[in-house]
């Protein structure tokens, strides 16, 4: 996993609530057996005017000029401002894979769906929860000012606005460590293999019917 330390990047505002994972990456692209290459199909039904199918040359497809990520001022965005319950719906990890492949490394919103939130951390994408008023202000500033860039410092747990205002955020200590170091959590868990084996042996003895 790519480490996440400090990100200074262009922000883009996706101003709608309950953005589901079907919208982030529609199902026809889930047929891939790879982890990469989903970026061109991120938000496929909103980004393009035709119907997307796997294997198309997306550069040649007609784009929806009204969709925020198609606007020239947001090209190269690495930070996505989101609304409530972003990432709801399916558990598909293709959603953070598509965001990451597109270039989004950080999401800032008032709330995220559980499974999606968790999946982001496994893929070097940092989802930040801030109070709704703070998010509203970021949306206002981002829409008002072309080239609006934020600085996200994970170590310090701060989002720094262009006007210098620093906004603190919460993050789990363990997830933070993993993200800062780009650690593979399977490797970390296997450091406790003996404990897992001991637990398993005890459970097998107490509840043999779960092991047949």
């Amino acid at each position: 996993m790519k480490a996440f330390t400090v990100l200074e990047g262009l922000a883009a505002p996706l101003d709608r609530a309950n953005v589901d994972t079907d919208a982030i990456i529609p199902k026809q692209f889930l047929k891939s057996i790879k982890r990469s290459g989903f970026g061109p199909n991120l938000f496929d039904e909103w980004r393009y005017l035709d119907q997307g199918e796997p294997g198309q040359d997306c550069a040649a497809r007609p784009r929806n000029p009204d969709f925020v990520l198609n606007k020239s001022r947001y090209q190269g965005a690495q930070i996505l401002l989101t609304r409530d319950n972003f990432g709801c719906g399916s558990s598909r990890e293709h959603a953070p894979w598509a965001l990451e492949d597109f270039g989004i490394r950080c999401l800032i919103g008032p709330s995220f769906a559980d499974i999606f939130f968790n999946n982001c951390f496994k893929n070097g994408v940092l989802p930040i929860v801030l109070p709704a008023e703070q998010v509203d202000e970021l949306f206002r500033q981002c829409e008002a000012e072309e080239g609006y860039r934020l600085r996200v410092d994970l170590q310090a747990q701060k989002v720094i606005r262009p006007d210098g205002v620093e906004i603190g955020f919460e993050v789990d200590a363990f997830r933070k460590e993993c993200l800062l170091n780009g650690w593979d959590d399977i490797g970390l868990t296997l450091l406790h293999a003996d404990e897992i084996r001991a637990f398993e042996a005890k459970r097998r003895a107490e509840h043999p019917y779960y092991f047949s």
Binding site: S91, I115, N118, K122, I186, T189
Partner: peptide, 9 residues
């Protein structure tokens, strides 16, 4: 439900 990284885990 879990994501694919968790399936691997």
């Amino acid at each position: 439900g879990i994501g694919t990284s968790e399936v691997e885990h």
